[in-house]
């Protein structure tokens, strides 16, 4: 399976680092692309990934209110929720996409998110 994760540099990428530092084992399907902010994530990039055969796309950023750039994830929240609701109309199972918020200190939670998401997509295969 090819899963792609778009993570903001400040919270979730650091949270994934923290999971690594804590050696919390995770399935190996997810490949993380570092983003400055979830606000930088163009829904088209996610759609492009699906079009090119991604089995799942996971987006994670700072919790609302904690954005390193103040507002970035608020814009992202709207864009990503709209995308999530539109995916079925485009013909993409909504289980293949998830967006969530993981802080730099939530290493264990990040590992759980990866576990759950990987399992969810795997069950569609």
């Amino acid at each position: 399976m090819k899963l792609i994760g778009f993570l903001c540099n400040w919270c979730s990428y650091a949270g994934a680092d923290m999971a690594g530092t804590s050696r919390i084992q995770q399935p190996g399907d997810l490949h993380i692309v570092r983003m400055p902010c979830t606000g930088r994530i163009n829904p088209l990039l996610i759609l492009k990934a699906f079009q090119e055969g991604a089995d799942g796309v996971l987006v994670s950023g700072c919790h609302p209110g904690d954005c390193h750039y103040n507002d970035g994830n608020y814009y992202a929240r709207r864009r990503l929720e709209l995308l999530a609701r539109m995916l079925p109309a485009f013909g993409i199972a909504s289980e293949r996409f998830q967006y969530t918020w993981v802080s730099a200190s939530e290493g264990a939670r990040w590992a759980q998110v990866v576990d759950d998401f990987t399992e969810r997509v795997r069950s569609l295969q």
Binding site: P64, D71, Y75, R78, M86, A89
Partner: peptide
Amino acid sequence: EQNRVIQEMFGYRAGIDPEAKPPLLSFNI
């Protein structure tokens, strides 16, 4: 479908109020 979802999400319809803030260019904390 997208117009329906936008209305469902934001209660917003384009082209009604020229002063309204477009939903994807604004946010609600």
